[in-house]
C-alpha cells in the first residue's frame, strides 16, 4: 500500500504543501477561489519550524493503535482499513480536544470546515486525500512538493532506500552523497545565526 512518506532533510520550508492541502480540502479546489471561501480552507499538514529555522512537514502518522482514536469521547475517530487512514466523523465530533491532548505529534486543529456540518467547529487532520486517491490522484501535499521531502510510495521501498543510503556511508570504499553545496552552505549559515542569537 502506498502512503505519504516524509523526508525531513529535504524540506526547504516553502509551505507549498500547506497551500496545496488547504486547496485540496476546499469547495472549489482551486487556490484563487479557495482563499475567498467561507469557511476558509485550512491545511492538514503544518510546516513547523525546527531549532535552526528549518522546515518540517508535520502531518498525521495514522498511528496504529491511534491514541486519538482511543481517547475520542464520542467515538468519532475511526480507521479506514483500505487506506490505513485514521479519519474523523465530523458529525459525531464534539470539539472536546481530547485528541489534541493525546496526540504526541500535535497534528490536530479545530475549526469549521467545508467537509463538516455548517458552522460547526470540529477536529481536523490529514485524511490522506482519500477523495483524491479515489479519483486516481496522489495526495495534494506530495504533488506540490518539488524537493522530494514528501513522497507517496510503499513504506518498505522508502525504508530500503534509506537503509541503502546509510549502509553506503558506512561500507568500505564508501560513496557518501553529500547534500548539494549551496544548500549545505545556507544551512551552515542558518545554524551559525541561531548559535549567535543564543550566545
Amino acid at each position: 500500500m502506498k502512503q505519504v512518506v516524509v523526508h525531513p532533510e529535504r524540506c526547504v520550508g516553502c509551505l507549498q504543501c500547506m497551500l496545496a492541502c488547504a486547496t485540496a480540502h476546499s469547495r472549489s479546489r482551486t487556490l484563487p477561489e479557495a482563499v475567498l471561501e467561507s469557511p476558509r480552507p485550512r491545511p492538514r499538514v503544518h510546516v513547523g519550524v525546527g531549532c535552526f529555522d528549518e522546515g518540517f512537514p508535520n502531518r498525521c502518522r495514522h498511528c496504529d493503535p491511534a491514541p486519538c482514536m482511543l481517547a475520542c469521547l464520542p467515538g468519532a475517530i475511526y480507521r479506514d482499513a483500505q487506506t490505513n487512514t485514521v479519519l474523523i466523523d465530523t458529525d459525531r465530533c464534539i470539539n472536546c480536544a481530547s485528541c489534541a491532548m493525546v496526540c504526541p505529534f500535535g497534528v490536530l486543529r479545530y475549526h469549521p470546515d467545508v467537509l463538516a456540518p455548517p458552522d460547526k467547529t470540529v477536529a481536523v487532520k490529514c485524511d490522506n486525500c482519500i477523495a483524491r486517491q479515489q479519483k486516481g490522484q496522489i495526495p495534494a501535499c506530495v504533488e506540490a512538493c518539488r524537493t522530494g521531502a514528501l513522497t507517496f510510495e510503499p513504506l518498505d521501498g522508502a525504508m530500503r532506500r534509506k537503509t541503502d543510503a546509510v549502509s553506503r556511508t558506512v561500507s568500505a570504499g564508501r560513496r557518501e552523497v553529500p547534500p548539494p553545496a549551496g544548500y549545505a552552505l545556507l544551512t551552515t549559515i542558518k545554524h551559525e545565526q541561531v548559535r549567535l542569537r543564543s550566545h
Partner: peptide, 25 residues
C-alpha cells in the same frame, strides 16, 4: 521557516509562464 527556494534565490516570479523554482536537491 522561511521559504528555502526564496532564501536560496531559486524562485523566479519574473513572468507568468511561471512562477518557477529549482529543486536544490
Amino acid at each position: 521557516p522561511h521559504c528555502g527556494f526564496c532564501e536560496m534565490g531559486l524562485s523566479c516570479r519574473n513572468c507568468v509562464m511561471g512562477p518557477c523554482r529549482i529543486d536544490p536537491f
